[in-house]
Computed example of a mutant assay.
Amino acid sequence: MRWLPVLAAMVLLCVSAGSMAGGQREEPLSNSVRALMQRSISDSAAPRLVFASEEEGQAWLQAMSRRLQKRIPDMQMREDFLRTVHYEAMRAGLDPQLVLALIHVESAFKKYAVSSVGARGYMQVMPFWVKAIGVNDHNLFHMRLNLRYGCTILRHYLDIEQGDLFRALGRYNGSLGKPEYPNLVVNAWRKSWTYQPVIAPVTAAALN
């Protein structure tokens, strides 16, 4: 069958896209933690930028959009993705730029990336999480669901590790105690996804 080599190549491409992904390890959750994570996953509010002003939000969106243009060429898709990343990160108490760095390393911004151990989507979420904190029809290739699961899981690991980012990232990747993956994410954060807001100078006229 002529299409078999093509199909095999497509599968290989998807798997290689998530080659840095390890896979969160399934661990028992207390009832209180499970309930908290389930509430987070069930949120249905519309994603939006969370900034002090519309101008600050647009400045962030434009800056991040320029950096992401080569990876997600379609502008509407790119901006929808960034708004969702920002919203899901902020509601989980995460730095949106850290989340972008994690996606950079985990999937290289490939929506349908699949790792060798079955982690899926932008944030390479393991399917067992759907059973643990979601509902059966949740599709981990759905953009917002994937980002929501990923941010909720990273927040959970940060809470377990009492804010220790390196250990939380190790848990996220399934490589706790090894420095390679946390270093990759932090380096991507620093080199590619840091953001300093542009603050307009205060003029005498503005103070009057």
Rank of each mutant, 00 (worst) to 15 (best):
S44R: 08
D74T: 04
A59G: 09
V50G: 01
R91S: 04
M37D: 01
A52E: 13
L36S: 13
H86C: 00
Q62I: 01
L94A: 05
P73Y: 04
S65D: 10
Q76I: 11
D80S: 14
G23F: 03
V50E: 13
R78Q: 09
M77C: 10
S44L: 08
A63Q: 11
S65C: 05
R71C: 02
Q58S: 12
R71F: 05
M90W: 00
A89Q: 07
M75T: 14
Q62T: 12
G22S: 10
W60G: 04
F81Q: 09
R83L: 05
E26G: 09
F51N: 10
L61R: 12
F51H: 13
L82S: 05
M37F: 11
A21S: 12
R91W: 03
A92G: 06
L49G: 08
E79V: 07
L68P: 02
R25G: 00
A45L: 12
F51G: 08
V50F: 05
Q69F: 02
A89G: 07
I72R: 10
R66F: 00
T84P: 07
R34N: 01
D95M: 10
L29Y: 01
S30P: 12
Q69H: 10
M64G: 00
I41R: 02
S42R: 13
D95Y: 09
V85I: 13
G22A: 11
Q58T: 12
A52S: 14
P47D: 01
A52V: 05
R66D: 01
F81T: 05
V50K: 15
R78E: 05
S30G: 15
A92Y: 02
S65P: 06
Q69G: 03
R71K: 14
L61G: 07
L36H: 09
N31T: 10
D43Q: 12
S40G: 14
A92P: 08
E27S: 11
Y87G: 01
G23I: 03
R39N: 13
I72W: 03
Y87Q: 01
T84R: 06
A63N: 11
R83A: 04
P28G: 03
S32C: 00
F51Q: 11
Q62Y: 12
A59H: 14
A46W: 03
M77S: 15
W60H: 08
L61P: 10
L29T: 00
R67A: 00
L36T: 12
A92F: 04
A92M: 07
M20A: 12
R25S: 01
L94M: 11
A35S: 11
P96E: 03
Q69A: 14
D74V: 08
W60E: 02
R78G: 07
A45C: 07
P28T: 01
D80F: 00
S40R: 15
S65L: 07
V85T: 03
E56F: 06
S44P: 00
W60P: 12
E55T: 14
A63R: 10
R83P: 05
G93D: 08
Q58F: 05
S40H: 15
G93E: 07
D95N: 15
S30Q: 06
S42D: 02
